[in-house]
Write a protein that binds this DNA or RNA. Structure first.
Lengths: 132, 132
DNA sequence: TATAATGATATAATATAAGTATCATTTGTC
DNA sequence: GACAAATGATACTTATATTATATCATTATA
């Protein structure tokens, strides 16, 4: 039932740290020291954020990561999409064909309401807004 | 990220079926035939609903389950609690001690807003309201 | 007494999340 | 140029939750 997995939680912490830092480029080692997160896990997740154009990466001595976007343009919703795919609190058990009344399933409708609320919140929350 | 697992989905289907039926007592076999759900799984879940006083159970020939509560008194929130424990979209990675600013963690606050909305919806949705 | 039901509980299978390990590549410094 | 410090790519392992199945005991009715 978790909306926020560790990937996402760690990503937010790292992004906030980078956004707050005076330095442009921050290495994984620094993040690990400051945030006390497991290094290989964090590394992999930052690589993903790089692939998805949220971070810029710098190889070699003195390298690390910097934000590729303004904190105002990094949305929680996007981070969730990156690590978990589309936001769905739903997911009908029956795959179309089997469920007789998918379209007016009352449970589905209720959950959809909650889902829509969650999506609108997540899509309007940015790293910038979490900075305080 | 699922709010509704199969336990809960199946439970809702079964409860709706029982609520709609003219008969009081419905056997697992009948539910399985009508709803096309896996029998041992459904059975176990109905036993749980019995233990949690949502259903009454009748052993022996002609036995089965009936509602122990009016459909107006069976809340989605309660079903979720029965099968998944308290509703939390949250769950801080760090256990109290470790996270420096648990109390004013901005991410936590945002998710809490969504959680509160979800809870209020789920606690106000009853089996009766899903009957149409 | 046979049969059709639930009660209780142990076990298995599968999927997802969380985390580790390793080798390749790049780049700055001495 | 050699070394060290960084990321790139990717395969693997471990842990946990979800989704079941199986079986023996108990109860009630025809």
């Amino acid at each position: 039932m978790k909306l926020i997995t560790r990937n996402i939680d760690y990503a937010v912490r790292a992004l906030l740290y980078i956004a707050r830092s005076k330095k442009e480029v921050i290495s994984v080692s620094e993040l690990v020291e400051e945030l006390n997160l497991p290094k290989p896990f964090l590394r992999r997740l930052l690589q993903t954020l790089h692939k998805r154009k949220v971070l810029k990466a710098y190889k070699g001595y003195g390298g690390g990561f910097s934000l590729a976007l303004s904190p105002r343009k990094i949305y929680l919703g996007e981070l969730i999409r990156i690590f978990k795919g589309n936001i769905k609190l739903n997911e009908c058990i029956f795959k179309r064909k089997l469920c007789p009344n998918r379209n007016n399933c009352p449970l589905r409708r209720k959950i959809k309401e909650i889902e829509n609320y969650a999506i609108s919140k997540l899509e309007s929350t940015t790293i910038s807004s979490l900075l305080d």
